[in-house]
Write a protein that binds this DNA or RNA. Structure first.
Lengths: 197, 197
DNA sequence: ATAGCAATAGACTGACTGGTCTACTTTGAG
DNA sequence: CTCAAAGTAGACCAGTCAGTCTATTGCTAT
């Protein structure tokens, strides 16, 4: 398994198609066609479509985690400012894909959680990893005294992740980033508030 | 089209299967099998699978709207209490289906928004109708002085809907209603706060 | 040079997809 | 009673699905 170029091409094409159409609506043949790889190669690298899907999730999760770290653990920027940058990046991406794609993990979580425990476990782990990134960012904010709330950073991180995922879903059906802006606005105005003097 | 029993059976079975497995993963034959209706009847009542899917959405939306009205416009109960009842009902349902089903409209919004404009429009309308129910409940709360916030009820309603949908998604992957409880907790503790004396 | 394995290549399979077709039964209006 | 329309019934269709199979190529260690 020295040459992983073919495997990577399959995962990249798969991630793109699955992001756009979902897992069930994306056939293996469509993936093969979109990257010009024959079926023999596919089943050389992956034992099944599920195996392939899990590889797509894993790849997406690791590369996405890198950008998450770059934004949320950038110590040259105040913690709440980092959060705002994260939201801005998400909005930019939503606009770039014309509100069609959204979040791959969120999409698959919705589509496959009830269908396969293997998928559910994998997606749940990804969410938990993300949540942890928010936790440390919020802890930084709390340590600096930027947040007055007595709510635990863990609960706050969960609240932000779910709210953001919901906003993405709504943005897709509305074809507008307004719900994402609305979420951010209320979050900073009501939840992540500075301590009163 | 006097006797709609068969049509209703199809829609009921379809709603159940689509809720559990999603639209793409639910074949017409599976629907027919689950309610013992032959294919001839299906295509007598519906011109295509898409047509059927839209009927399922419409039916779900109207029946769900009735329970929404019953809870959110119950004038014998204070507005914020009505909201809490709504959340409690959602949590009960989530537990009843063992965290597998979630919200049909949310599921389909995620799965089909990028796939078909017809579906997206239909689902968007449902969301907007729901949002309106929240708006009037929040207006009641504001009129009674139960809410201090200067945020417009329209924005607040959007925030609640997206946050709730996100919490449902997270609850599915986590197989726990904790995210739903967490959302409600922070919402009432930080956002829907009484005016300070 | 060659044996052996990794990888490529795509024809092929059975099961299943959404959708069509024809035949039959029931119903209600005249 | 009659006859057309509404509705039931399921065999059937072309296309697609995930997955298998055999054949061939390319590389590498001996």
């Amino acid at each position: 398994m020295k040459n992983n170029v073919t495997r990577d091409k399959l995962i990249d094409s798969g991630a793109q198609l699955i992001s756009q159409q979902g897992y069930n609506a994306t056939g293996i043949n469509a993936v093969l066609k979109s990257c010009g790889v024959p079926k023999g190669s596919f089943y050389h690298y992956f034992s099944s479509k599920e195996d392939f899907g899990l590889a797509v999730i894993e790849r997406f999760a690791t590369t996405y985690d890198e950008t998450l770290v770059a934004i949320l653990e950038d110590n040259d920027t105040p913690p709440l400012e980092r959060l705002k940058r994260y939201f801005a990046t998400g909005r930019d991406y939503m606009l770039a894909c014309d509100h069609t794609t959204g979040c791959l993990i969120g999409n698959l979580g919705q589509e496959l959680s009830g269908q396969s425990d293997t998928f559910r476990d994998a997606l749940n782990l990804v969410f938990q990893r993300w949540e942890q990134r928010f936790v440390s960012c919020l802890q930084d904010a709390k340590a600096r005294g930027d947040i007055a709330t007595c709510i635990a950073p863990e609960a706050l991180a969960g609240f932000i992740l779910t709210g953001w995922e919901g906003a993405i879903l709504r943005a897709k059906t509305l074809k507008s980033v307004a719900p994402m802006e609305q979420f951010e606005m209320i979050l900073f105005q009501q939840v992540l508030v500075r301590p009163s003097p």
